[in-house]
Design a protein around this nucleic acid. Structure first.
Lengths: 200, 200
DNA sequence: TAGATTGTTAATCGATTAACAATC
DNA sequence: TAGATTGTTAATCGATTAACAATC
């Protein structure tokens, strides 16, 4: 019923899970209760989440699945094309550049640069961004170059950075940075595992 | 002072940040206050975090940096070798297999399998795990094969799964699964960006 | 109407922050 | 001793859950 407001990180991570489930759901209607049970989530939680996303379900019936899918896509912005560019064409950079999974979310990595572009033409990012709307800059360069590329992104007017280098970037307040550190993430999984084994 | 207990996810994600900072810190001692300020975190938060990890600092002095580094590594288990295997040798699988960043956390991907191994020898994972202690199984196969590979991991006695496929795996209760969905993660970053732009 | 479901208001829980006492 | 820092106890805040009222 009410749109926006109260968009916590945890909530935003649940929304794509709802979408995935709905897209393979074989029925015209679904209740928040059903969705909650099938995903092992609290039913009030799901109901409140859906209330933030959609204009509401009908008592006794629930939500119309196809409408809910549209509402989720609209809420998350998946109905709008987003563009990203990536700098750093090592293995990880290449794999992201070729990754087909972004298509589902209407995201395209429109251009990839190798770090060597920087030496040839330090303005390469800025000139590209003058012609193409770039929403996100992706950093997959070695850590020594990360801050440097970050600065070029900011200078080119990019407002969101997806950073795969293990460096805490310094950026102006208005720039959003999301750090992805795969090794750290795996190490935390192993920590959980070790704790569990030593528990009993 | 007290070890273990209260190990929330948010806390575990801060620990590697502390470690990174300490490893480049150029002094013998550091206070929780200093660490907090330099990382833009609350000082009581950092103090409580460190109390969970280390045997304590000294009033007026703070923590001995080299000791704190050792305590963090020990707490997180970075002083113990961990092994992983990976199934799925697409671009993403290859890039993880060759990723040098795991070394820092004493994690090694000791073996990589392509999905075709499965057809040649469905027991390939199980036989490998009989000879080598495997802590984590990594799934980078296409979504159609993900549950299948997951089942093989569980059957081989692997207790932790790092899943890059966009599938919610079903596993026995005692198995830990961590899902990494890169496209989803990027889409959430873009959602934040769009919200921010539409805010004012 | 009765019942399943919705949406809302109040209670709980856990993480963070603030205020304080202890120590070298 | 005075002061900087530690560790702890109480308060706040936000997310989740429980209890309830509204609706078709």
């Amino acid at each position: 019923m009410m749109m926006q407001n109260c968009v916590s990180e945890a909530f935003l991570e649940r929304v794509p899970i709802y979408l995935n489930h709905l897209e393979v759901y074989q029925d015209e209607f679904i209740s928040a209760t059903t969705l909650a049970n099938q995903l092992n989530l609290g039913e009030v939680l799901v109901r409140k989440d859906l209330a933030k996303i959609s204009y509401g379900g009908k008592p006794k019936i629930g939500y119309i699945v196809s409408d809910l899918i549209i509402d989720i896509k609209s809420f998350m912005g998946y109905d709008q094309k987003s563009n990203a560019i990536i700098v750093g064409m090592g293995q990880l950079g290449k794999s992201l550049y070729q990754y087909p999974g972004f298509l589902k979310y209407n995201i395209e990595i429109t251009q990839a640069f190798d770090i060597s572009s920087y030496y040839k033409n330090p303005e390469f990012i800025k000139s590209y961004c003058e012609n193409v709307k770039v929403d996100v800059g992706i950093i997959t360069v070695p850590k020594e170059a990360a801050q440097n590329i970050c600065d070029l992104f900011v200078d080119a007017g990019i407002k969101a950075i997806w950073n795969f280098s293990p460096v805490r970037l310094s950026v102006p307040d208005e720039i959003i940075v999301q750090n992805i550190n795969l090794a750290e993430s795996l190490s935390i999984l192993i920590k959980h595992l070790n704790d569990k084994e030593n528990q009993i």
